[in-house]
Design a protein around this nucleic acid. Sequence first.
DNA 1: GAATTATATAACCAAAGACTTATATAATGG
DNA 2: CCATTATATAAGTCTTTGGTTATATAATTC
Lengths: 116, 116
Amino acid sequence: MTAVTVKQDTASTVQCMKAMSDPTRLLIMKLVQKKAYCVCQFVDMFEMSQPAISQHLRKLKMAGLVREERRGQWRFFSMNDEFGAHDLVLSILNQLDDEDETLRAIQSKETAVSCD
Amino acid sequence: MTAVTVKQDTASTVQCMKAMSDPTRLLIMKLVQKKAYCVCQFVDMFEMSQPAISQHLRKLKMAGLVREERRGQWRFFSMNDEFGAHDLVLSILNQLDDEDETLRAIQSKETAVSCD
DNA sequence: GAATTATATAACCAAAGACTTATATAATGG
DNA sequence: CCATTATATAAGTCTTTGGTTATATAATTC
């Protein structure tokens, strides 16, 4: 297991961190680390309006942290593991407790999507 | 060398990340990782007004990332290594390139303080 | 092709951020 | 004690952010 890390410059580090410095987006990243989710699933899990979720996802996508894939009428989002600061993303997510209350609460609200 | 990491909950992770999600504060953290600096040194290095620097330092201090120490008329700031999310801070700083242009430029402007 | 479902986008708003200038505080040195 | 130096704080401004509601777009189903 090599631990060689791709170093980032100040601007990209800040951009990546800003994208993740929000509870909703941080948890979305934690979730997409495991598998892809569609917008409506996030809407249910975070109990947040569809436009609000959509805008959070747009930020993550614009920053390069996630990737979007269309499946029928759904749009699935997953972690972009080719992202330049991918190592930074991983080390941040790695510091986040998997037993965290907020995370647990959100995961428990996961709903299935027809196309699954 | 143990790599056991103290996990953080969502709220503290976000709080810590927000404190560092600014180029000035990120670089201040990178600097204080090595040694303590006083306010006037940051003012010179970042070519930023004294109140602006003072406010950035207050944010870092309020969030628990740095520690303040008075030496005569100066106030020195250093990394708080007893901070709960200290590991998170370190892994973020570790991802930041030491050869980064912005960092280099700032370091080159370091000035001495009489009391040193 | 009309209704439904999933999503994005636009326009708006309140709160938070990052500065500014002006002023207060506190230690130092004559 | 007074002037100087280092720093903090207050108040104001402008921008960014994270939500809202309303509407547009696009695929699916009947």
